[in-house]
């Protein structure tokens, strides 16, 4: 067995190749998830790359990514499986006409029932099963990355329903029995903390908290994601955003917004930040008019500070 540190930095490098820059803490979580075969619960403010992490993992390990977006009212019919009712109905229609042929020669009610019984089994077989995200990932031959996005938006019934899947990698379908994973998927659950996740779920997961990145990491992320930005501008914009996060805002800009902003600035052929440019493009960073109005007076100071920091 190679030393864990080596393996962890391998993961980090592998992610970097996919354009996902992360620190050792995040890589450690992936390392643990693979070795302990446990799901990862990723928490953190919106836009720090929780979902991206799952995508990067699927690319890095070359596994299929199966995504399940949670929302209020999501139930197992939409998450796990569903019977192909239309197909079943169609087949019944077809069978109806053939019923006479089938029943030919059957003596008495009991014999006819026996024949019919043979059919109802076929109706509830895998032929008629429509697999949804969870079942798909259990059936996947070479394993998969299963992303259960924004688990906090689902109802607690669904959370409870997930427990069996998360601890045993198996699921029970009443008509078919228990389905075990062919090979254990790597499961990511993400949460924005709109509500507290249940203890039972937390207990079964590795818990990873991704905070906003520091200036250094964010610069590297921008380098990887928007390579067109020149170095001077890159430092300036990162330092601007970092300072912005210190202020009292309704919604602080996330990494994804920094990336968008960098792209915007490239599009405008900016060489360095100036306050007019910032003022015109601020709506990429801040998503509340209140926030934009509030910091309007600070823009000059912030810009100068960012330029000074970049030198």
């Amino acid at each position: 067995m190679t030393a864990p540190r080596v393996e962890i930095s391998d993961i980090q490098d592998g992610f970097a190749k996919e354009g996902y820059i992360c620190n050792a803490h995040i890589a450690t979580a992936i390392f643990l998830a693979r070795n302990l075969e446990k799901p990862i619960l990723v928490e953190g403010p919106p836009g720090v790359g929780k979902t991206e992490l799952a995508k990067a993992t699927s690319e890095f390990l070359n596994l299929e990514l199966i995504r399940l977006q949670c929302y209020e009212g999501l139930d197992e019919a939409k998450a796990l499986y569903e019977w192909k009712y239309g197909k079943q109905l169609l087949y019944t229609q077809v069978l109806k006409e053939k019923l006479g042929d089938l029943m030919e020669g059957a003596q008495g009610l009991a014999a006819s029932m026996d024949r019919l019984h043979e059919f109802d089994d076929t109706f509830f077989s895998e032929e008629f099963l429509e697999p949804r995200a969870l079942l798909k990932s259990l059936w996947s031959e070479k394993g998969s990355v299963l992303l259960i996005d924004e688990i906090d938006k689902s109802d607690d019934e669904f959370e409870a329903f997930l427990l069996e899947l998360l601890s045993e990698y198996q699921i029970t379908v009443p008509e078919l029995g228990t389905i075990k994973a062919k090979s254990s998927p790597i499961v990511f659950l993400t949460s924005n903390n709109t509500r507290e996740i249940g203890d039972a779920l937390k207990r079964r997961c590795i818990h990873l908290y991704i905070p906003f990145p520091d200036a250094d990491l964010e610069t590297r992320i921008i380098t990887a994601r928007v390579p067109e930005v020149e170095e001077g501008l890159r430092k300036q914009l990162v330092s601007f955003v970092q300072n912005l996060r210190e202020l009292e805002l309704k919604k602080v800009p996330a990494v994804s917004e920094t990336i968008d902003w960098a792209r915007t600035l490239v599009l405008l052929h900016a060489k360095e930040l100036d306050s007019d440019m910032v003022r015109n493009t601020l709506n990429v960073l801040l998503k509340f008019q209140d926030d934009i109005d509030n910091i309007d007076s600070d823009i000059n100071a912030l810009t100068t500070k960012a330029r000074a920091a970049a030198e």
Binding site: A3, P4, A24, T28, L32, R203, I206, H207
Partner: peptide, 19 residues
């Protein structure tokens, strides 16, 4: 992960113990 590498141990334990 073993006890050799402090930082790795800390990261790893924090992820399974503190939630």
């Amino acid at each position: 992960v073993g006890f050799e590498d402090r930082q790795v141990l800390k990261d790893a334990l924090s992820q399974v113990l503190a939630k």
